[in-house]
Nucleic acid binder design. Structure first.
Length: 111
DNA sequence: AACATGACGTATT
DNA sequence: TAATACGCCATGT
């Protein structure tokens, strides 16, 4: 299963390409990594990412902008903390994205 | 092989 | 916006 490793590497790379202050959903990351319909697997890949890979995992949220970890959990707080350190606005465990901003991202990331 | 799980997504109400 | 339901798919048991 060396191919699995390659796919994970691609996922990490895609996440590393998310600029500070921006976010992407698991599904988006999956598509950009050439793994359509594999959002859940992206989560597995992130969980497996070693700290040495320097993957900004906190910039990945559910499709609606919510932090995927259970509210109140340590990791949920940690993600919110890092997100805010990036300059993102987090309210009720959700990253606020203005429509224009979201559209710009879609444009910047297409293909 | 069958079934449960999960850092998910989408449609519907 | 929130709650539900169902779809999806790699993994682990």
């Amino acid at each position: 299963m060396e191919d699995r490793r390659a796919a994970m590497t691609r996922v990490w790379q895609v996440v590393r390409a998310i600029p500070r202050g921006a976010t992407a959903s698991y599904g988006e990351v999956a598509r950009r990594a050439g793994l359509p319909r594999r959002a859940r697997w992206v989560a597995v890949a992130l969980k497996a990412a070693p700290a040495s890979a320097r993957v900004p995992w906190h910039r990945v949220t559910a499709a609606d902008g919510r932090i995927a970890f259970p509210a109140g959990s340590r990791q949920h707080r940690e993600q919110a903390r890092r997100l805010r350190a990036d300059g993102c606005v987090v309210v009720n465990g959700r990253v606020i994205r203005r429509k224009a901003e979201a559209d710009l991202d879609a444009w910047l990331w297409r293909r």
